[in-house]
Protein backbone atom coordinates (compact mmCIF):
# COMPACT_ATOMS: atom_id res chain seq x y z
CA UNK A 1 0.00 0.00 0.00
CA UNK A 2 2.69 2.45 0.97
CA UNK A 3 4.65 1.80 -2.21
CA UNK A 4 1.58 2.57 -4.24
CA UNK A 5 1.35 6.06 -2.78
CA UNK A 6 4.98 6.75 -3.54
CA UNK A 7 4.86 5.61 -7.15
CA UNK A 8 1.53 7.26 -7.86
CA UNK A 9 2.76 10.56 -6.39
CA UNK A 10 -0.54 12.44 -6.77
CA UNK A 11 -0.10 15.55 -8.84
CA UNK A 12 -0.26 19.01 -7.39
CA UNK A 13 -3.46 19.89 -5.59
CA UNK A 14 -5.06 22.93 -7.21
CA UNK A 15 -8.22 23.35 -5.19
CA UNK A 16 -8.79 22.03 -1.71
CA UNK A 17 -12.42 21.89 -0.61
CA UNK A 18 -12.86 21.18 3.07
CA UNK A 19 -16.09 20.83 5.09
CA UNK A 20 -18.00 23.02 2.69
CA UNK A 21 -21.52 23.82 3.85
CA UNK A 22 -23.91 25.56 1.48
CA UNK A 23 -27.48 26.52 2.26
CA UNK A 24 -30.24 29.05 2.10
CA UNK A 25 -30.97 31.43 4.95
CA UNK A 26 -34.73 31.40 4.94
CA UNK A 27 -35.38 33.41 8.08
CA UNK A 28 -33.00 34.61 10.74
CA UNK A 29 -33.18 31.30 12.59
CA UNK A 30 -34.07 28.94 9.77
CA UNK A 31 -31.36 27.60 7.53
CA UNK A 32 -31.99 25.10 4.79
CA UNK A 33 -28.78 23.16 4.25
CA UNK A 34 -28.22 22.04 0.66
CA UNK A 35 -24.66 20.76 0.83
CA UNK A 36 -23.05 19.53 3.98
CA UNK A 37 -19.35 18.85 4.51
CA UNK A 38 -18.30 18.47 0.89
CA UNK A 39 -14.70 17.39 1.05
CA UNK A 40 -12.40 16.82 -1.93
CA UNK A 41 -9.45 18.12 -3.95
CA UNK A 42 -9.07 19.08 -7.57
CA UNK A 43 -5.61 18.20 -8.85
CA UNK A 44 -3.74 19.79 -11.71
CA UNK A 45 -4.34 18.24 -15.11
CA UNK A 46 -6.96 15.76 -14.00
CA UNK A 47 -10.51 15.22 -15.17
CA UNK A 48 -12.57 14.95 -12.03
CA UNK A 49 -16.10 13.56 -12.23
CA UNK A 50 -18.83 14.75 -9.89
CA UNK A 51 -21.71 12.25 -9.89
CA UNK A 52 -24.99 12.16 -8.05
CA UNK A 53 -28.73 12.19 -8.53
CA UNK A 54 -30.73 15.41 -8.83
CA UNK A 55 -30.72 17.19 -5.52
CA UNK A 56 -27.46 15.64 -4.37
CA UNK A 57 -25.82 19.04 -4.38
CA UNK A 58 -23.41 18.63 -7.26
CA UNK A 59 -24.52 21.78 -9.07
CA UNK A 60 -24.32 23.77 -5.81
CA UNK A 61 -20.73 22.66 -5.24
CA UNK A 62 -19.97 23.59 -8.82
CA UNK A 63 -21.49 27.04 -8.39
CA UNK A 64 -19.51 27.67 -5.23
CA UNK A 65 -16.39 27.26 -7.38
CA UNK A 66 -17.35 30.13 -9.66
CA UNK A 67 -19.00 32.28 -7.03
CA UNK A 68 -22.49 32.35 -8.47
CA UNK A 69 -24.34 30.84 -5.54
CA UNK A 70 -26.02 34.15 -4.78
CA UNK A 71 -27.99 34.01 -7.96
CA UNK A 72 -29.62 30.94 -6.52
CA UNK A 73 -29.99 32.80 -3.20
CA UNK A 74 -27.67 30.31 -1.55
CA UNK A 75 -24.77 31.11 0.75
CA UNK A 76 -21.66 29.36 1.97
CA UNK A 77 -22.12 28.85 5.71
CA UNK A 78 -18.85 27.16 6.47
CA UNK A 79 -15.78 25.40 5.24
CA UNK A 80 -12.99 26.48 2.95
CA UNK A 81 -12.21 26.33 -0.76
CA UNK A 82 -8.47 26.98 -0.98
CA UNK A 83 -7.25 27.96 -4.42
CA UNK A 84 -3.87 29.56 -5.00
CA UNK A 85 -3.66 30.99 -1.49
CA UNK A 86 -7.19 32.38 -1.60
CA UNK A 87 -10.20 31.05 0.22
CA UNK A 88 -12.90 31.15 -2.44
CA UNK A 89 -15.51 30.62 0.24
CA UNK A 90 -14.75 34.04 1.68
CA UNK A 91 -13.62 36.36 -1.10
CA UNK A 92 -15.85 39.22 -2.19
CA UNK A 93 -17.37 39.91 -5.58
CA UNK A 94 -14.52 42.20 -6.60
CA UNK A 95 -11.93 39.52 -6.10
CA UNK A 96 -14.17 36.95 -7.73
CA UNK A 97 -13.85 38.93 -10.94
CA UNK A 98 -10.21 38.02 -11.22
CA UNK A 99 -10.98 34.34 -10.61
CA UNK A 100 -14.21 33.63 -12.41
CA UNK A 101 -13.60 33.09 -16.11
CA UNK A 102 -9.98 34.09 -15.66
CA UNK A 103 -8.71 31.23 -13.55
CA UNK A 104 -11.79 29.01 -13.47
CA UNK A 105 -13.82 28.67 -16.65
CA UNK A 106 -17.39 27.48 -16.77
CA UNK A 107 -19.30 25.53 -19.40
CA UNK A 108 -23.03 25.73 -18.65
CA UNK A 109 -25.45 22.85 -18.71
CA UNK A 110 -27.64 23.87 -21.54
CA UNK A 111 -25.85 24.28 -24.84
CA UNK A 112 -29.08 25.31 -26.45
CA UNK A 113 -29.80 28.27 -24.22
CA UNK A 114 -26.25 29.03 -23.05
CA UNK A 115 -25.09 31.43 -25.75
CA UNK A 116 -26.66 34.86 -26.09
CA UNK A 117 -29.19 34.50 -28.92
CA UNK A 118 -28.91 38.08 -30.14
CA UNK A 119 -25.13 38.26 -30.39
CA UNK A 120 -22.93 36.73 -33.03
CA UNK A 121 -20.62 33.92 -32.00
CA UNK A 122 -17.62 36.15 -32.68
CA UNK A 123 -19.10 38.98 -30.63
CA UNK A 124 -19.53 36.71 -27.64
CA UNK A 125 -16.06 35.29 -27.88
CA UNK A 126 -14.48 38.72 -28.24
CA UNK A 127 -16.37 39.79 -25.14
CA UNK A 128 -15.01 36.77 -23.29
CA UNK A 129 -11.49 37.46 -24.55
CA UNK A 130 -11.50 41.16 -23.71
CA UNK A 131 -13.28 41.11 -20.38
CA UNK A 132 -10.21 40.85 -18.20
CA UNK A 133 -7.25 41.79 -20.33
CA UNK A 134 -6.48 44.82 -22.36
CA UNK A 135 -6.52 43.62 -25.88
CA UNK A 136 -7.17 45.54 -29.03
CA UNK A 137 -10.20 44.65 -31.04
CA UNK A 138 -8.05 43.13 -33.76
CA UNK A 139 -6.07 41.10 -31.34
CA UNK A 140 -9.24 39.85 -29.69
CA UNK A 141 -10.67 38.83 -33.03
CA UNK A 142 -7.53 36.86 -33.77
CA UNK A 143 -7.76 35.13 -30.41
CA UNK A 144 -11.48 34.36 -30.96
CA UNK A 145 -10.61 32.69 -34.26
CA UNK A 146 -7.89 30.74 -32.53
CA UNK A 147 -10.38 29.57 -29.92
CA UNK A 148 -12.89 28.44 -32.54
CA UNK A 149 -10.11 26.54 -34.22
CA UNK A 150 -9.07 25.02 -30.91
CA UNK A 151 -12.52 23.51 -30.35
CA UNK A 152 -12.47 22.15 -33.92
CA UNK A 153 -15.09 24.34 -35.48
CA UNK A 154 -14.75 24.08 -39.19
CA UNK A 155 -14.70 27.33 -41.17
CA UNK A 156 -14.33 29.59 -38.11
CA UNK A 157 -14.47 32.71 -40.26
CA UNK A 158 -18.06 31.82 -41.25
CA UNK A 159 -19.16 30.77 -37.78
CA UNK A 160 -17.67 33.97 -36.34
CA UNK A 161 -20.43 36.03 -37.92
CA UNK A 162 -23.22 33.57 -37.28
CA UNK A 163 -25.83 33.61 -34.54
CA UNK A 164 -26.39 30.71 -32.12
CA UNK A 165 -29.64 29.62 -33.78
CA UNK A 166 -27.70 28.87 -36.94
CA UNK A 167 -25.55 26.30 -35.15
CA UNK A 168 -26.31 22.78 -34.04
CA UNK A 169 -26.35 21.87 -30.34
CA UNK A 170 -22.93 20.27 -30.53
CA UNK A 171 -21.44 23.33 -32.20
CA UNK A 172 -23.02 25.65 -29.67
CA UNK A 173 -21.50 23.62 -26.88
CA UNK A 174 -18.11 23.86 -28.60
CA UNK A 175 -18.54 27.63 -28.70
CA UNK A 176 -19.32 27.63 -24.98
CA UNK A 177 -16.17 25.62 -24.35
CA UNK A 178 -14.22 28.07 -26.49
CA UNK A 179 -15.58 30.95 -24.39
CA UNK A 180 -14.60 29.15 -21.20
CA UNK A 181 -11.07 28.75 -22.58
CA UNK A 182 -10.78 32.40 -23.54
CA UNK A 183 -8.67 33.42 -20.55
CA UNK A 184 -6.53 30.28 -20.32
CA UNK A 185 -8.03 29.17 -17.01
CA UNK A 186 -6.48 26.58 -14.71
CA UNK A 187 -9.77 24.77 -14.30
CA UNK A 188 -12.79 24.22 -16.51
CA UNK A 189 -16.08 23.37 -14.83
CA UNK A 190 -18.49 21.56 -17.11
CA UNK A 191 -21.94 21.10 -15.57
CA UNK A 192 -23.66 18.30 -17.49
CA UNK A 193 -22.25 19.64 -20.75
CA UNK A 194 -23.90 17.05 -22.95
CA UNK A 195 -27.44 16.93 -21.58
CA UNK A 196 -29.78 16.85 -24.54
CA UNK A 197 -27.05 16.20 -27.08
CA UNK A 198 -26.74 13.05 -29.15
CA UNK A 199 -24.42 10.25 -28.11
CA UNK A 200 -22.20 10.81 -31.12
CA UNK A 201 -21.95 14.51 -30.32
CA UNK A 202 -21.41 13.68 -26.66
CA UNK A 203 -18.50 11.46 -27.61
CA UNK A 204 -16.95 14.31 -29.61
CA UNK A 205 -17.38 16.84 -26.79
CA UNK A 206 -15.75 14.42 -24.36
CA UNK A 207 -12.88 13.89 -26.73
CA UNK A 208 -12.46 17.64 -26.93
CA UNK A 209 -12.39 18.01 -23.14
CA UNK A 210 -9.72 15.31 -22.92
CA UNK A 211 -7.66 17.01 -25.60
CA UNK A 212 -7.85 20.33 -23.77
CA UNK A 213 -6.69 18.68 -20.59
CA UNK A 214 -3.70 17.08 -22.28
CA UNK A 215 -2.74 20.07 -24.35
CA UNK A 216 -2.89 22.73 -21.63
CA UNK A 217 -2.54 20.55 -18.54
CA UNK A 218 -5.83 22.05 -17.44
CA UNK A 219 -8.07 20.48 -14.82
CA UNK A 220 -11.59 19.63 -15.87
CA UNK A 221 -14.45 19.09 -13.43
CA UNK A 222 -17.20 17.16 -15.15
CA UNK A 223 -20.58 17.13 -13.43
CA UNK A 224 -22.85 14.36 -14.60
CA UNK A 225 -25.39 11.82 -13.43
CA UNK A 226 -24.16 9.39 -16.04
CA UNK A 227 -21.74 7.03 -14.34
CA UNK A 228 -20.81 5.36 -17.62
CA UNK A 229 -19.71 8.67 -19.06
CA UNK A 230 -17.65 9.49 -15.96
CA UNK A 231 -16.00 6.09 -16.18
CA UNK A 232 -15.02 6.72 -19.76
CA UNK A 233 -13.60 10.19 -19.41
CA UNK A 234 -12.48 10.88 -15.86
CA UNK A 235 -9.40 10.07 -13.84
CA UNK A 236 -10.99 10.43 -10.43
CA UNK A 237 -14.54 10.83 -9.24
CA UNK A 238 -16.52 12.23 -6.35
CA UNK A 239 -19.85 10.55 -5.62
CA UNK A 240 -22.42 12.77 -3.96
CA UNK A 241 -25.62 11.72 -2.21
CA UNK A 242 -27.91 13.77 0.00
CA UNK A 243 -25.75 16.87 -0.15
CA UNK A 244 -22.55 15.22 0.97
CA UNK A 245 -19.62 13.38 -0.59
CA UNK A 246 -19.90 9.66 0.03
CA UNK A 247 -16.99 8.33 -1.96
CA UNK A 248 -13.88 9.79 -3.57
CA UNK A 249 -11.23 7.90 -5.48
CA UNK A 250 -9.76 7.02 -8.83
CA UNK A 251 -12.31 5.91 -11.38
CA UNK A 252 -10.67 2.52 -11.77
CA UNK A 253 -10.51 1.90 -8.06
CA UNK A 254 -14.10 2.99 -7.44
CA UNK A 255 -15.43 0.91 -10.35
CA UNK A 256 -13.62 -2.25 -9.31
CA UNK A 257 -13.67 -1.86 -5.60
CA UNK A 258 -16.46 0.49 -4.51
CA UNK A 259 -16.41 1.28 -0.81
CA UNK A 260 -19.80 2.85 -0.33
CA UNK A 261 -23.16 1.05 -0.68
CA UNK A 262 -24.53 3.93 -2.77
CA UNK A 263 -21.77 3.55 -5.33
CA UNK A 264 -22.27 -0.21 -5.31
CA UNK A 265 -25.98 0.30 -5.94
CA UNK A 266 -25.31 2.86 -8.69
CA UNK A 267 -22.94 0.46 -10.38
CA UNK A 268 -25.52 -2.30 -10.28
CA UNK A 269 -28.30 -0.13 -11.68
CA UNK A 270 -26.26 0.55 -14.81
CA UNK A 271 -28.27 -0.23 -17.86
CA UNK A 272 -25.41 -0.87 -20.24
CA UNK A 273 -24.41 -3.83 -18.10
CA UNK A 274 -27.90 -5.27 -17.78
CA UNK A 275 -29.08 -8.33 -19.64
CA UNK A 276 -32.02 -7.36 -21.85
CA UNK A 277 -35.31 -8.70 -20.57
CA UNK A 278 -34.25 -9.08 -16.95
CA UNK A 279 -35.39 -6.80 -14.17
CA UNK A 280 -33.06 -3.88 -13.66
CA UNK A 281 -31.74 -3.52 -10.17
CA UNK A 282 -33.03 -0.27 -8.77
CA UNK A 283 -32.05 1.66 -5.71
CA UNK A 284 -34.74 1.50 -3.08
CA UNK A 285 -36.79 4.63 -2.54
CA UNK A 286 -36.00 8.11 -3.75
CA UNK A 287 -33.01 10.30 -3.00
CA UNK A 288 -33.66 12.08 0.29
CA UNK A 289 -35.09 15.53 -0.29
CA UNK A 290 -33.28 18.61 0.89
CA UNK A 291 -34.20 19.23 4.52
CA UNK A 292 -35.54 15.68 4.88
CA UNK A 293 -32.23 14.01 5.51
CA UNK A 294 -32.39 11.17 8.00
CA UNK A 295 -30.05 11.17 10.98
CA UNK A 296 -26.87 9.22 10.67
CA UNK A 297 -25.92 8.10 7.18
CA UNK A 298 -28.22 9.72 4.62
CA UNK A 299 -28.21 6.62 2.48
CA UNK A 300 -29.27 4.39 5.39
CA UNK A 301 -32.94 4.26 4.38
CA UNK A 302 -32.05 3.00 0.93
CA UNK A 303 -29.05 0.87 1.84
CA UNK A 304 -29.21 -2.90 1.63
CA UNK A 305 -26.36 -3.39 4.08
CA UNK A 306 -27.79 -1.04 6.68
CA UNK A 307 -27.10 -1.76 10.34
CA UNK A 308 -28.49 -0.17 13.49
CA UNK A 309 -25.51 2.07 14.10
CA UNK A 310 -25.88 3.60 10.63
CA UNK A 311 -29.01 5.44 11.64
CA UNK A 312 -27.68 7.43 14.58
CA UNK A 313 -25.65 10.56 15.02
CA UNK A 314 -24.34 12.90 12.38
CA UNK A 315 -23.68 12.12 8.75
CA UNK A 316 -20.42 10.12 8.73
CA UNK A 317 -17.36 11.93 7.33
CA UNK A 318 -15.14 10.68 4.54
CA UNK A 319 -12.35 8.41 5.75
CA UNK A 320 -9.41 7.19 3.73
CA UNK A 321 -10.16 3.46 3.49
CA UNK A 322 -7.33 2.74 1.12
CA UNK A 323 -4.65 5.02 -0.17
CA UNK A 324 -6.27 7.79 -2.22
CA UNK A 325 -9.69 6.23 -1.80
CA UNK A 326 -12.16 7.73 0.64
CA UNK A 327 -15.55 6.47 1.77
CA UNK A 328 -18.16 7.86 4.15
CA UNK A 329 -19.53 4.44 5.05
CA UNK A 330 -18.81 3.46 8.64
CA UNK A 331 -18.88 -0.18 7.56
CA UNK A 332 -16.69 0.33 4.50
CA UNK A 333 -14.29 -2.36 5.68
CA UNK A 334 -17.00 -5.03 5.66
CA UNK A 335 -18.38 -4.16 2.23
CA UNK A 336 -15.88 -6.07 0.12
CA UNK A 337 -17.20 -9.40 1.31
CA UNK A 338 -20.85 -8.35 1.34
CA UNK A 339 -20.93 -7.07 -2.22
CA UNK A 340 -19.59 -10.25 -3.75
Amino acid sequence: MSTATVTESPSEVLVEIRDLVIGIQRTRADRLILVDSADFDIRRGEILGLVGESGSGKTMVCRSLIGTLKRRSATIFGGTIMFDGMDLAKIDERRWRSVRGNRIGYVPQSALTGPNPVMTIGGQLVEAVRCNRNRTERDARKRAMELLDLVHIRRPEVVYDQYPFQLSGGMRQRVMIAAALAQDPDIILADEPTTGLDVTVQAEIMKLLREIRTEFNMSVVLVSHDLALIDDVCDRLVVMHGGTCVEVGSVKEVAQNPKHPYTIALNRARIELATPGTQLITIRGNPPGVGEWPSGCRFSERCEFVQDDCRVGASPPLLEVESNHWSACIHAGELGAASE
Partner: peptide, 17 residues
Amino acid sequence: KQLIASIPGRHLQGAGA
Protein backbone atom coordinates in the same frame (compact mmCIF):
# COMPACT_ATOMS: atom_id res chain seq x y z
CA LYS B 1 -21.28 1.59 -36.17
CA GLN B 2 -20.49 5.15 -35.19
CA LEU B 3 -23.51 5.29 -32.87
CA ILE B 4 -22.58 2.10 -31.12
CA ALA B 5 -18.98 3.17 -30.74
CA SER B 6 -20.18 6.33 -28.96
CA ILE B 7 -22.00 4.55 -26.12
CA PRO B 8 -20.18 5.49 -22.94
CA GLY B 9 -19.06 2.66 -20.70
CA ARG B 10 -19.10 0.21 -23.56
CA HIS B 11 -15.70 -1.18 -22.71
CA LEU B 12 -17.14 -2.47 -19.45
CA GLN B 13 -19.81 -4.56 -21.08
CA GLY B 14 -17.69 -7.62 -21.59
CA ALA B 15 -16.29 -7.53 -18.08
CA GLY B 16 -19.52 -6.80 -16.25
CA ALA B 17 -21.98 -9.13 -17.94
